[in-house]
C-alpha cells in the first residue's frame, strides 16, 4: 500500500530552544503501528509538505513525540503547530537502534545537538531496565547551553555517567566546554564489551565512531543514525541513497562497519 497519513492531534507543544520544539501527539482515531526508538515518521504539515522525523518519545498508549528544528518550510510550519492542531503521520519507517542487542553490555550514547532527540527513547528504555544492561553512559554535545534540548530531564537520568559539553558557554555555564568526544575519557565503559549509539551532525558522527573504534569498540556494535533527503520513506523515490544503502529502508540507523567507507566518499 502507498501509505496515506493518519491524523494525529498535537496535545502539547514544548519549546526546547530558540528554533526547536517538541510536539506530543496522540492519534485522533486508529494509531499507527508501534514505533521502535530510532525509527521515524513522515510528518505532514497541512499545505506545506512532509518531512522525516525520528520519534523522540514513544508511549505505550500509541502517543508519541517529535522534536523538530525549524530549518525549512515544512519544519518551520510544524514548529508553529499548536496544541489542538491535527498533523498527518505515516510510519513507522526504517531501522531502530536495536538496543536489545546490547543486553548485558555497557551502553555508550553519544548525541550532538538535536541528535539527542532520536536517542532519547533509547536512553529511557535502557534506564528503565537497569538489570538488562551494564553501565549506561550518555554524552551530549551542544552548541550553547541555550541549545540543549531536554536539559531539565537530563540531570534526572540515573545513568552511570552523564556528560554535557558545549561549544560556546554563556556566563552562567559551569559545565564542560569542548567536543563531545572529549567526554569519552570520563565515561565509564569497557570498550570491548560495549555498544554505542551515536546521532548528530555527520562530521560529529564520523569523529565519534572513529574514536570509539580506536578505543576498541567493535565497529558492528557502533550504531549511527544518518540523514538524507527523503520523499517517500518506502524505498521508491530514490532520494535517500547513500551508495548501496537506502536510508529509509536500510537506515536511518546503520552499523558503523557498513557505513564508514561510504561516509568517506565525497558526494556519494
Amino acid at each position: 500500500m502507498t501509505d496515506v497519513p493518519v491524523p494525529y492531534l498535537v496535545v502539547d507543544r514544548r519549546p526546547e530552544t530558540a528554533d526547536t520544539v517538541t510536539l506530543r501527539l496522540e492519534p485522533v482515531a486508529e494509531p499507527l503501528a508501534d514505533f521502535a526508538p530510532g525509527q521515524f515518521a513522515m510528518v505532514h504539515c497541512f499545505g506545506r509538505g512532509e518531512i522525516p522525523v525520528s520519534v523522540s518519545s514513544v508511549q505505550a498508549t500509541g502517543g508519541l513525540a517529535h522534536t523538530i528544528r525549524a530549518v525549512g518550510a515544512v519544519s518551520a510550519g510544524l514548529c508553529e503547530a499548536r496544541a489542538g492542531d491535527v498533523l498527518g503521520l505515516r510510519g513507522p519507517y526504517g531501522t531502530g537502534w536495536e538496543l536489545e542487542r546490547a543486553r548485558g553490555r555497557d551502553v555508550v550514547v553519544v548525541a550532538g545537538g538535536i541528535g539527542l532527540a532520536p536517542l532519547r527513547p533509547l536512553i529511557l528504555r535502557a534506564l528503565a531496565g537497569p538489570a538488562a544492561y551494564g553501565r549506561v553512559n550518555v554524552l551530549i554535545g551542544a552548541r550553547t547551553p541555550a541549545d540543549l534540548i531536554d536539559h531539565k530531564e537530563i540531570e534526572r537520568w540515573p545513568t552511570t555517567y552523564t556528560g554535557v559539553t558545549v561549544d560556546r558557554p554563556d556566563d552562567a555555564w559551569r559545565g564542560d566546554v569542548g567536543l563531545v568526544t572529549g567526554l569519552l575519557d570520563r565515561a565509564d565503559f569497557a570498550p570491548a564489551d560495549s555498544w554505542a549509539f551515536v546521532c548528530g551532525p555527520e562530521p560529529m558522527i564520523r569523529a565519534t565512531a572513529r574514536d570509539l573504534a580506536d578505543r576498541g569498540l567493535r565497529p558492528d556494535r557502533i550504531r549511527v543514525s544518518l540523514e538524507r533527503n527523503m520523499r517517500c520513506a518506502t524505498g521508491h523515490c530514490g532520494h535517500c541513497q547513500l551508495g548501496p544503502v537506502l536510508l529509509c529502508r536500510d537506515g536511518p540507523v546503520v552499523a558503523w562497519d557498513r557505513t564508514e567507507a561510504l561516509l568517506a566518499v565525497r558526494e556519494l
Binding site: 491524523p7 485522533v28 498527518g88
Partner: peptide, 17 residues
C-alpha cells in the same frame, strides 16, 4: 496524485487515498 487532505472549519483533518 498520491492522496489529498481536507481540513474542516473546526480544524479536523482527513486524508484520502
Amino acid at each position: 496524485r498520491l492522496w489529498s487532505a481536507d481540513r474542516t472549519p473546526e480544524g479536523d483533518v482527513s486524508f484520502t487515498a
